[in-house]
């Protein structure tokens, strides 16, 4: 457990000392969402109808933007090699790195989302569901993203390739998360969507660390 906590603490420390790595995607998140009322319509009805889709699409894209840095620095300076040959479980180390990534990408989005939800005229019930979907599903974005990031770690300018690999896997999350918020706006049941997102989270937690470790070993050979 010591390696897990130490890896999280190390990655957070590194991010705080090089804040652009995690602030840029967050700025993208805030700026993109704030531009929608100007570009589409300032009408409350239009914006609140589009808000679930807008917030979730921008969330996915900003997490995708931040994925490039997940393994990139450690690959460049050789620390990833040491992680692979370590006697500690590589899956556990990568899970720790992915947790730190979520704390720097998903968690700030969850904190900012009520304010941006209000800016897009979401009602209080919908904002609660928005936060709930983000809490359940943003860890999935980081976990699934870690597989793609580990596959392209040795490839320069791999942003486009990473998007092509990962975005199709994000689509089910996008569909169920936005559907849950839209249903909440119409006072319809949301249990099914939340159960699916919960299942996706558990499955990602179990499967992705092993897949990331495997793909990382292949990438570094």
């Amino acid at each position: 457990m010591s390696i897990f906590l130490n890896t999280i603490s190390r990655d957070l420390k590194m991010a705080i000392r090089n804040p652009s790595s995690f602030l840029n995607p967050l700025m993208f998140f805030v700026i993109s969402i704030s531009l929608f009322p100007i570009a589409i319509s300032p009408e409350a009805e239009t914006l609140s109808r589009m808000a679930p889709g807008i917030i979730w699409v921008i969330t996915m894209l900003s997490v995708l933007l931040s994925l490039n840095t997940l393994f990139h620095y450690d690959f460049d300076n050789g620390v990833l090699e040491q992680m692979i040959i370590s006697h500690h479980s590589l899956s556990l180390i990568l899970l720790a790195k992915t947790t730190a990534h979520w704390m720097l990408s998903g968690l700030p989005i969850i904190i900012l989302s009520p304010f941006l939800g209000m800016a897009l005229f979401l009602n209080s019930q919908s904002i609660i569901i928005l936060i709930l979907t983000l809490i359940i599903a943003t860890p999935c974005l980081s976990l699934i993203g870690s597989i793609g990031a580990s596959l392209v770690v040795g490839i320069k300018n791999s942003g486009m390739l990473l998007s092509l690999l990962i975005l199709p896997l994000y689509i089910p999350i996008l569909i169920f998360a936005t559907s849950a918020i839209s249903n909440a706006q119409s006072n319809l049941a949301i249990d099914g969507q939340l159960y699916f997102l919960g299942f996706f989270l558990v499955a990602s937690l179990i499967i992705t660390p092993f897949l990331s470790a495997l793909s990382l070993k292949i990438s570094l050979e």
């Binding site: 190390r10 590194m14 000392r17 090089n18 620095y73 300076n77 050789g78 620390v79 040491q82 040959i85």
Partner: peptide, 12 residues
């Protein structure tokens, strides 16, 4: 194993 790269993070 100590490879060509120093395995050090510049931010630490």
């Amino acid at each position: 194993y100590l490879g060509h790269l120093a395995s050090l993070s510049p931010e630490l």
